[in-house]
């Protein structure tokens, strides 16, 4: 039918179409998606907690800006976990207090190898990226406008974490840690510092955690 064809054309097009597929999640997926999100947040809180015990992140060798970032980011992830679990409970589900099993194992294996700020930043980037991609994808999977807003709202913040971490990583790799400062000496920043934090025009979703990955069993 003419009108349906036009609707199909619109629906099949767009940068997200291939990554997300057309199917929308059933309401029962809402609880699982929220629990998985909470599990990613729990893992992020645990990881930043551990990172803050490292001398170059939370100890005497740490730059104040780095320590502050780790502390505030950990707090923000804690608030995200609380928000996801509150939504779970409103839907009659059990709050998720455990970390995402897949990425908890990845963190467990990575921790002994973290010897420098660059190592820690790289691990944090992975966790922030997975979280942002998961939530961006979940926006299209959950069944209510309220949940779409929650996932979008948090995806944006994880992306901000990632943007700063990517910039910090670039400065560390360029052996310019002194430029990680607030306010920065912007005249001294390398040109690439202006773009390395946002490498994609559209948030990818290929690394998104499956809805059930962190669900309460």
């Amino acid at each position: 039918m003419h009108s349906k064809n036009r609707f199909r054309q619109f629906s099949a097009h767009g940068p997200a179409a291939a990554a997300t597929g057309a199917a929308q999640g059933a309401p029962r997926d809402d609880v699982a998606a929220l629990q998985t999100a909470a599990s990613l947040e729990n893992l992020a809180v645990q990881t930043y907690q551990m990172a803050l015990t490292l001398p170059f992140i939370g100890g005497p060798q740490a730059k104040p800006e780095v320590k502050m970032f780790a502390e505030r980011t950990m707090m923000q992830h804690s608030e995200h976990a609380a928000a996801f679990n509150a939504a779970v409970q409103r839907l009659g589900g059990k709050p998720q207090t455990a970390p995402d099993p897949k990425y908890a194992e990845m963190v467990r294996q990575a921790l002994p190898a973290i010897k420098t700020p660059d190592d820690a930043v790289g691990l944090a980037i992975t966790l922030e990226d997975v979280a942002a991609q998961t939530y961006a994808k979940d926006v299209g999977l959950v069944s209510t406008a309220e949940l779409r807003q929650l996932f979008a709202s948090v995806a944006g913040v994880e992306s901000m974490h990632k943007a700063i971490l990517l910039t910090v990583q670039a400065l560390l790799k360029a052996n310019q840690p002194q430029l990680i400062a607030r306010p920065p000496q912007i005249a001294e920043l390398p040109s690439s510092a202006g773009s390395v934090g946002f490498p994609d025009a559209f948030c990818p979703t290929a690394m998104a955690a499956p809805v059930e990955e962190g669900a309460v069993k």
């Binding site: 767009g14 299209g140 979008a152 944006g156």
Partner: peptide, 18 residues
Amino acid sequence: DHTAIMTAATIQPVETMH
């Protein structure tokens, strides 16, 4: 529309990164 929602969802994080 699902695709419109996802387009917004994948652009929003980029604006927050900016």
